[in-house]
């Protein structure tokens, strides 16, 4: 109790407050600025979006209650289902190649190779560059008669055909995302005690067995984090589509985030835009919870 009396706040404590109560209050006061920030910029917008999703609202006039009308509209709205398909496809096609390449890079960089610090910086650089600048540069690289096709000896219309445009965007996103995943994997790899490898090597384990029985199991929490991050980033993807194709050709790359932008700011249908964002929010929540559950189940079996 004496420890709090030196605090300026101490003079305001009610006499009957115990030490732990006072410490809780002090802790709360320290977190208050962040809490206020969180309430104003996170919770308030989320609650507003939920409320608006049950209304018709054009930003300028009053809101009109429509109940589940906006959600019912989505069920029969082909633009919504197209955006959902684009978003899920992007998440699925972007994640695994990015993880695989990042894991290989992290494994190589972890070795004591000449110039590994240089390569680490080179691979990470795309992550810190402007997404808009990168998307613009890649839209030049991906032209049918552009450098990428010339290098690979292909003649693919990466961004202008409906069945290849999303792949063009995935290629750019993998290139940009690999560096970040590599750093996460590298941190995970460096946290595995070297003694595990040494002990296994003494027992005659080869590289593959070390990978299978030590590295991959020990990296399970890292993989879980990476998968969740990919789901969240994939479900929110906006910039590459906006810059490289404007959602085209013929809506083949219009993601859910872009649909929200079109519905809300362009078409002034904030109610429907909020309903789409709520569906996205719930989808991310479900996928994340399922993923975490799966991870916990596996962990339990292991233990």
């Amino acid at each position: 109790m004496e420890r709090t009396e030196s605090l300026w706040l101490g003079r305001f404590w009610p006499d009957n407050w115990r030490y732990h109560t006072r410490m809780k209050v002090v802790g709360f006061l320290f977190t208050l600025p962040v809490l206020v920030f969180f309430l104003v910029f996170n919770i308030y917008p989320i609650v507003s979006a939920i409320v608006i999703s049950f209304h018709e609202f054009d930003l300028f006039g009053p809101m009109t209650w429509v109940g589940l009308g906006n959600y019912e509209n989505l069920a029969g709205n082909k633009n919504f289902w197209s955006a959902m398909r684009v978003t899920l496809s992007f998440t699925l096609f972007f994640g695994p190649p990015a993880w695989l390449i990042a894991f290989i890079f992290a494994s190589l960089i972890r070795e004591k190779l000449i110039g590994r610090f240089f390569f680490r910086s080179v691979f990470f650089t795309p992550t810190i560059l402007s997404a808009v600048a990168m998307a613009t540069a890649w839209s030049l690289l991906l032209r049918q008669n552009g450098p990428l096709n010339a290098m690979l000896g292909l003649s693919v219309s990466w961004l202008t055909k409906q069945d290849s445009a999303l792949w063009g965007i995935v290629i750019m996103s993998v290139w940009q995302g690999v560096g970040w995943f590599m750093v996460v994997f590298l941190a995970g790899l460096q946290s595995i005690p070297q003694t595990f490898y040494e002990a296994a090597a003494i027992d005659g384990a080869g590289r593959w067995r070390l990978m299978r029985h030590i590295t991959l199991p020990m990296l399970r929490p890292v993989f879980a984090f990476v998968v969740i991050h990919t789901i969240i980033a994939g479900m929110k993807v906006f910039t590459p589509m906006f810059i490289m194709t404007g959602g085209g050709p013929n809506n083949a790359t219009r993601s859910m985030a872009m649909l929200i932008y079109h519905e809300g700011l362009r078409d002034l249908r904030m109610g429907r835009a909020s309903a789409v964002s709520m569906v996205g929010f719930v989808l991310i929540l479900i996928l994340t919870v399922v993923q975490l559950r799966l991870f916990r189940v596996h962990e339990g079996i292991e233990e």
Partner: peptide
């Protein structure tokens, strides 16, 4: 008042006709 939506629809069709 629905210019943005109409334009988006037509742009998509133009792209499908021209590119494919």
């Amino acid at each position: 008042e629905h210019y943005a939506e109409v334009a988006r629809i037509l742009r998509g069709k133009i792209e499908a006709m021209a590119f494919e």
